[in-house]
Design a protein around this nucleic acid. Structure first.
Lengths: 228, 228
DNA sequence: CGCCCCGTATGATCCCGGTCATGGGCCGAA
DNA sequence: TTCGGCCCATGACCGGGATCATACGGGGCG
């Protein structure tokens, strides 16, 4: 039962990068669908004719096992449901069932791909959006790993490459960051940031000066292991 | 200086999903380029004519600031360099400079998009690959947050929805997982996993049976806070 | 039967880092 | 000048979890 209210593009990250014009082109293809708890969105083996994006609710992906079903994943709002199968033109490899009352934006794959072949801009924007999100996520993942000391060390290595000015006694970073700033940048508390900085101060690795930092022993910074 | 040796598709996640046929189609467009330390890949404002993928080395993205350059990011092997600008058909918004001797796979954007318009399969595979990686990353990010107890609680909630069989005394999960398995699933050590399980055993939340687990107090599991 | 391996269990210890409290130096405003 | 704020520094303490060591029970197997 196709409906015609506005499509919630912004709650669907994959479609969010589309501009107004693209959206106007895509919108007529979209159906908004509602599923009750326990309803089946699609079943394993069916041809993947629709790209579904979940915008409210929760859906489980299950694979029928010999004795009992096996849940592969549980998807929430914003996530694509079965999109990979659609893109790869394969039948759905598993079954999707609503765990709660759920709503999807569903697009017939045939028309969707016909559209993006006619309007390559859309492809480009989809690729751009996905690429950006991937890079952002990668960064977030990398930045939350490792010990605090490791993260601060990476921060200063980066700063050195950025505004680093080589001097006789080391590399000077002409940037006044408060301990609080450092703590925020690496995601810790001010006390821990202070402790790291004073430790480095004492061992002559990095010194805090009036209007910046002097990195005396860059090697020392690079030697610090993630320890995780 | 275009070279013709094999393209390292597998070190470039965005291109990795392409199959042999696609690769054969894409390969002739690719140039392998080498940059010395300090060399410029492209400069801010230039039209984005090439998609670059870094397969060895390290590249910084800098934006010229009034006094000093500002490093926006540092990219490593496998990452696209300036791809978003290419996809969106905009001039490069910043400059890319090799921090180390680096190598890229570079593809002329015009020919690349001409190719994928001729072979929509490639688009589909690119979209599928990106979507899969995004979903995987999202999951990893979500699953590394919170205390161990919280993560184990989530694991069992999920299992309950999966193979949960309601009984008079609770929900039975007919799945024999060793403590080691549990530890691996939530990313901790075996001892910590054991401690959580014995704690729950004692307080009658989850009991380990011969060939599965009996969840006696599902509410208790849901009450456990992330604590982070 | 005895031996050994594997999985489970538990205690001791240690480290990292967050929280709380306290104190000192510097500076601008009253 | 004095007072209140802000930033830096330091110590005490605690909790989560990793690591190490040890112990116990149940099988398979020579």
């Amino acid at each position: 039962m196709p409906l015609r209210p506005p499509i919630p593009f912004n709650t669907i990250p994959i479609l969010a990068p589309l501009n107004a014009e693209d959206r106007a082109a895509v919108a007529p293809l979209c159906e908004l669908r509602a599923y009750e708890k326990g309803a089946t969105l699609f079943e394993e083996g069916q041809p993947a004719l629709f790209i579904h994006f979940l915008f409210v609710g929760r859906v489980k992906i299950v694979k029928a096992a010999p004795d009992r079903d096996l849940i592969l994943e549980i998807l929430g709002p914003g996530e694509p449901v079965g999109a990979v199968a659609v893109f790869e033109r394969r039948p759905f490899p598993a079954t999707a069932i609503a765990l709660e009352p759920s709503g999807t934006v569903s697009i017939p794959e045939l028309e969707f791909f016909r559209l993006i072949e006619k309007r390559p801009e859309i492809t480009r924007r989809l690729l751009a959006g996905l690429t950006m999100r991937l890079m952002a996520l990668n960064r977030r993942l990398a930045d939350t790993t490792g010990s605090v000391e490791y993260r601060v060390a990476r921060l200063f290595s980066t700063l050195a490459e950025q505004v680093g000015k080589d001097r006789a006694d080391g590399t000077f970073v002409a940037l006044h960051l408060s301990r609080q700033d450092i703590a925020d940048l690496v995601g810790t508390t001010i006390e821990t940031a202070i402790r790291v900085m004073t430790r480095w101060q004492k061992q002559g690795t990095v010194e805090t000066e009036k209007d910046g930092f002097l990195i005396r022993k860059m090697e020392r910074l690079r030697e610090i292991a993630p320890s995780e």
